[in-house]
Each structure stands twice: as structure tokens, then as C-alpha cells.
């Protein structure tokens, strides 16, 4: 039996594994401000897409008895519209990389993608 070994402390709660899993063994549900990712105990498919898709290398395969794992994440709300849009861990993963490229912590870090669109549009309107 091939078990799925997920390092919960490495997982940032992104959508990679649940999106890439074609037979939908890994499920992701967003309810309110909570994201739940459920991993099965084992997976017999001849496939390692989730392992390769994981940005932090949190997924590994092992042998022996495993048990299903459910990880819970808190979604942080957008500072403008209040809609929960990303997990704290996702933003902690993305922001250092973004800051490196942009040369400093961005001021839009608390905004959801829709509100960023809105803000950049308003910014352009002010500029003209």
C-alpha cells in the first residue's frame, strides 16, 4: 500500500495539490474564513503529480499503514472588502519573494486580487 505522508507544518494551504489531483482524492473546501484540505490515507494511482506540484515539498509517499489527514487553515480577510482570500501561510510564503522583486514590502499586501484591481484603477484615475 502506498500511503500519503503529508508534513502538516510545511503545508501552506495553497490549491496546488487539490487542483492537480485528477481523480479528486485531495479535496479543498473554503467555508467562511476556514480552508479545509483533506488528504486520503493512501493512494493507489500510478501518479505523483501532487508530490511534484507541492511548492514546499510537504507531500511524500511511504509504505505501511497511514491515516487520513485533514488540515485546517484560517483565511485572512481582505482589508478593503472583507472577503477571506488567502491563508496566512500563503501570504507568508509569497510576500518575502514579492518584496525582493519590488524592493520593499508592498502596500497592497492585505488586499484580495479583485480589490487590487480596484485600487490600481483608482490610482490611475487620480494620476490623470
Amino acid at each position: 500500500m502506498r500511503t500519503l505522508e503529508v508534513a502538516g507544518e510545511k503545508c501552506i494551504g495553497c490549491r496546488a495539490c487539490s487542483s492537480i489531483c485528477a481523480p479528486l482524492h485531495i479535496s479543498l473546501t473554503d467555508v467562511g474564513n476556514r480552508r479545509t484540505i483533506a488528504f486520503p490515507a493512501s493512494c493507489e494511482e500510478d501518479c505523483d503529480l501532487c508530490l511534484r506540484a507541492c511548492p514546499t515539498g510537504a507531500i511524500a509517499f511511504g509504505a505501511g499503514p497511514g491515516k487520513p489527514l485533514t488540515l485546517e487553515f484560517e483565511l485572512i480577510p481582505c482589508s478593503k472588502c472583507g472577503k477571506p482570500f488567502a491563508t496566512r501561510e500563503e501570504m507568508a510564503f509569497v510576500l518575502p519573494k514579492v518584496s525582493k522583486v519590488l524592493g520593499g514590502e508592498p502596500d497592497w499586501k492585505g488586499l484580495c486580487p479583485e480589490c487590487r484591481r480596484e485600487e490600481s484603477a483608482s490610482g490611475l484615475r487620480v494620476a490623470i
Binding site: 495553497c14 490549491r15 496546488a16 495539490c17 487542483s19 492537480i20 506540484a53 511548492p55 482570500f85 488567502a86 500563503e90 501570504m91 510564503f93 509569497v94 519573494k97 514579492v98 519590488l102 508592498p106 497592497w108 488586499l111 484580495c112 486580487p113 479583485e114 480589490c115 487590487r116 484591481r117 480596484e118 490600481s120
Partner: peptide, 20 residues
Amino acid sequence: TGCELCLLACPFGAIGLDGK
């Protein structure tokens, strides 16, 4: 992979998510 990290990184919200 559909991880949505690029959506969270784009300063202008110019990337969308089409299902997965």
C-alpha cells in the same frame, strides 16, 4: 498547478483563476 500563488503576488490583480 493551480496553486493561486501568482494571483496573490500580482500587484494589479491582473491574473484570474479559471476553476483550477
